[in-house]
């Protein structure tokens, strides 16, 4: 074996570095650099900020609430998104393209706009609320309480998390070889069994990735929550908002919370990707 890489291989490496450089640069400038600044701020006074943070009760209730909100919004979105993706995969190309376009639309709205949209529809003076009052005698005050609650928040989050799930799962289902299902059915398996034993195991990895992605988005998002439920609902992004706005003062604590939130979201995504990767890897070596 020669100590010098062959010319073509060198070129190969060169091209790869060149191609990844812009991405790496963006990653460094917009994630690593700011994160570094925040870390420096958090480290001020030998981790006093982090200590203060983890010794406060409201941090832990916020942590719990954020986790519950993230998991429930992600579960709801995954269930809805999976159904939609399965249906889309069975459509013709043209119909599917149109539907995908419509479904992707909520992804372009900011969280604030989504919140106001829901207020206009389901708020106390909302169109749906007032219609329900006329049609079914529903009390608008009680009905609108629901959309302004943490449950309402999970519901609104699903609105822009479902498209993310659909976008992740649809290509996977499209590439799924449906003759496997036909083969199982011809051997006498029921429709349900073929789905549970053949389709779902192959979708498991991508489903976990999608679940983790949308859970992380729900855990980290704040615009919708701020506009909708206000700051009384104790979730970590709103705690962070409260700390950095007008009246905030302790930067070490604030920076520590920022790091914790980043870490939490990264871990959730990491777990999902890891499960997804392992599954994909194992099923490939199984063959």
């Amino acid at each position: 074996m020669s100590a010098v890489l062959p010319q073509s291989k060198l070129q190969d490496v060169g091209i790869r570095v060149l191609l990844t450089a812009p991405g790496m640069l963006v990653f460094a400038i917009f994630l690593l650099l700011p994160l570094g600044y925040v870390a420096v701020e958090a480290a001020e006074g030998q981790g006093r900020g982090l200590l203060l943070l983890v010794s406060s009760r409201s941090f832990w209730t916020g942590f719990l609430n954020s986790t519950v909100l993230g998991l429930s919004a992600a579960t709801l979105s995954l269930a809805l998104g999976l159904g939609v993706a399965l249906r889309l995969a069975r459509m013709g190309h043209a119909a599917r393209t149109i539907w995908l376009f419509v479904i992707a639309l909520p992804l372009t709205f900011s969280g604030l706009i989504v919140a106001y949209g829901f207020i206009l529809a389901f708020g106390r003076a909302g169109f749906v609320t007032l219609s329900l009052e006329v049609i079914a005698g529903v009390d608008p005050a009680a009905f609108s309480q629901a959309v302004y609650s943490p449950y309402g928040l999970a519901f609104v989050y699903a609105y822009y998390l479902v498209p993310r799930v659909v976008m992740t799962l649809t290509p996977v289902i499209l590439n799924f070889d449906h003759s496997q299902l036909a083969a199982a059915e011809s051997l006498g398996a029921s429709r349900r069994r073929t789905l549970v034993d053949i389709l779902l195991p192959q979708l498991y990895g991508p489903m976990m990735s999608a679940f983790a992605l949308v859970a992380a988005v729900a855990i980290g998002a704040y615009g919708t929550a701020l506009a909708l439920v206000g700051s009384q609902v104790n979730i970590l992004p709103l705690q962070l908002f409260t700390m950095v706005s007008d009246a905030g003062a302790d930067f070490a604590v604030t920076a520590s919370l920022g790091l914790v939130l980043t870490a939490l979201c990264s871990i959730v995504i990491g777990i999902g990707e890891w499960i997804g990767f392992n599954r994909a890897h194992r099923s490939r070596t199984d063959e």
Partner: peptide
Amino acid sequence: NVLRVMGTTPYAQFVKGEI
């Protein structure tokens, strides 16, 4: 009696009849 505590001024919400 408290319906919500807000983090930002909900002026549009008030005018829309939410408060």
